[in-house]
Amino acid sequence: MFIQPWGAALDDAKWQTWIAEGHDFGILSVNGPPGHAPAVVPTHSTVDGTALLVHLARPNPVWKAIETDPNVTFTITGDYAFIPGPWRAKPGAEHTDGVPTSYYAAVQSPARPASSTTRRPRRSCCAGRWPTSSPMATTPPIDPAQPPYGRMLPGIRGLPLDVADVRAKFTYDHRTVEQRTGTARRLTERGTTPDAPTAAQQLRRLDRAGTWKS
């Protein structure tokens, strides 16, 4: 993932906070056998100690791909929006001179399966998910010997991942403060589904970074 200096996370707390705010659904990418396209699996994730934990159906063919090449990447993206060219025109220039772009946040984690992959209790794979994904739901305990989940647990495998690195990208422009503030206002006024969180990210980054200086 290419990251311009102005798009880099300001510190580790930035991407850690972003993940903790509920950005936990992403794409697991696995190289797979030679001659085959990479396997790509959308899935939830949770942080489990020092590992990133996902769970997948036991029949999922991605397991075979992981056995072939254990180097994987987990990517989460969010708070994205398309920015029309006129919004980005330089002061005094024609609106048609503005170049469109996209704002988005992305956290990418190259990783390898942890040595405890085969020993991780299956119920721990799901237990960490419910408090955030369904905070108002009342769910029974996850007990391998009891319904309703006991009979389902053999159908999944947990995949704890040892993360080798974290690449975080927050692409919210490097124009003047006035222009970026105006873009946040226009996003709020436009009001499509991803616009509000994108505007919030823009303003949050503005508050900390101000005008970009190379």
Rank of each mutant, 00 (worst) to 15 (best):
P100H: 04
P100F: 03
P100M: 04
P100E: 03
P100R: 03
T101I: 04
T101K: 07
T101E: 02
S102A: 11
Y103E: 06
Y103C: 05
Y103S: 03
Y104W: 06
Y104L: 06
A105S: 14
A106P: 00
A106K: 05
V107W: 08
V107R: 06
V107C: 02
Q108F: 00
Q108R: 10
Q108D: 01
Q108H: 07
S109W: 15
S109G: 00
S109K: 09
S109V: 11
P110C: 08
P110S: 08
A111L: 07
A111C: 05
A111D: 03
A111H: 02
R112Q: 04
R112K: 11
R112P: 00
P113T: 04
P113A: 04
A114V: 02
S115H: 03
S115D: 13
S116W: 02
S116T: 09
S116C: 05
S116F: 02
T117Y: 10
T117A: 15
T117Q: 14
T117V: 15
T118R: 11
R119H: 04
R119T: 15
R119G: 01
R119I: 08
R120N: 00
R120E: 12
R120I: 14
R120V: 14
R120P: 00
P121G: 08
P121S: 08
P121R: 06
R122Q: 13
R122D: 01
R122T: 15
R122S: 08
R123F: 05
R123C: 02
S124Y: 03
S124A: 11
C125W: 03
C125K: 02
C125V: 07
C126T: 12
C126S: 09
A127M: 07
A127R: 07
R129E: 09
R129K: 08
R129Q: 11
W130H: 13
P131Q: 06
T132M: 11
S133P: 00
S133N: 08
S133W: 10
S134R: 13
S134A: 15
P135C: 10
P135E: 01
M136T: 13
A137C: 04
A137P: 04
A137D: 11
T138N: 07
T138W: 05
T138R: 06
T138C: 01
T139G: 02
T139M: 15
T139F: 13
P140H: 12
P140L: 14
I142F: 13
I142L: 15
P144G: 08
A145H: 10
A145Q: 08
A145K: 10
Q146P: 01
Q146G: 01
Q146N: 04
